[in-house]
Amino acid sequence: MSVLPPARPAATAAQPAPALKPAGGRRFAAGRTILALILREMSTRYGRTPGGYIWSIFEPLAAILFLSVGFSLVMRSPSLGTSFLLFYATGYMPFHLYQSLAGSIAAAIRFSRPLLQYPAVTWLDSVIARFLLNSLTGILVTILLLAGIIAVVDAHTTLNMPPIIEALGMAMLLGAGVGTVNCAISGLFPIWEVIWSILTRPLFIASGIFFLYDTMPPLAQDVLWYNPLIHIVGRMRSGFYPTYTASYVEPIFVLSVSLILLAVGLLLLGRYHRDILNL
């Protein structure tokens, strides 16, 4: 008697579908890309300069010292407290944090243009990397400078941390909003970078670094109130001077302006980033 071989499975049997890669893998890949961009910028910006990160501390310190010495020659005491160094530092540092973020994010695509030709690197990765690096650097420099000034001048300051954290957060968000909009506009129209630098030069004077908003004439207050940096500087100083309330500060106004600019900037970059890369 012959034994029949076992029947083979039908040729038309459906093959199992290949397993899909989990979304977490893509998220981890984006994280690695952002970290690589941060390390690349750190080595490019600070690794090739003698002193490296030390210059990021000396630059704002030199500006604060210059302001303090200059105004101490014509004024007996600052508008708040007894230390010119602390008064100008509490105004200059949030402004410097905003300015560094806005400027670095505005150049994100131009700086990472060669890497953006690779599919694994996106324009959003470049923006996020610059935001994280400059935010962490700015906060670290602010902490070191203000702590050093308080220790040296013995200003007997009672710190109120929530307003300080709020001011730094608003400066970071405003810098991100302005930076993304300028990244898109200057990418499409390179002349905008020059125009913007000319238009915003008065901000150094009009942001409350040298004076208190409360001491300005009513007409100047009506105009300056619409400068978000006035609110940020006022909130920052209220965290160092317990007697200063800065009642004019409206965080909702600053957050609204920042979020609107950030949304517009991200929409423009999402729509035109390929055109910017091809220019």
Rank of each mutant, 00 (worst) to 15 (best):
T122Q: 10
M172W: 06
G270K: 09
G270N: 15
M216R: 14
G52S: 05
S112Y: 12
T215Y: 01
I164M: 10
P163N: 07
L101R: 07
I276Y: 08
S197P: 00
F28M: 09
F111E: 06
L168Q: 05
L146M: 15
G265I: 04
L255R: 03
N182E: 06
G234T: 09
Y213T: 08
I232D: 01
A10N: 13
L266H: 01
F111C: 00
A10M: 10
L259R: 04
S68C: 07
A129C: 08
A14S: 14
R32L: 11
V181S: 05
L168H: 03
L140T: 15
S100G: 08
A147N: 13
V264C: 04
Y92I: 00
A10K: 09
A13Q: 15
G177K: 11
Y53A: 15
G179A: 09
T137V: 14
F87L: 06
N160Y: 05
I150S: 13
G81A: 04
H156N: 15
I198P: 01
L37G: 03
G208N: 01
A220V: 13
T12V: 06
K21D: 10
S72L: 09
L73T: 10
L80V: 03
T180W: 05
D154L: 13
I209E: 05
P163R: 05
Y241T: 02
H156G: 13
P242Q: 11
N182G: 04
N160V: 10
A120T: 13
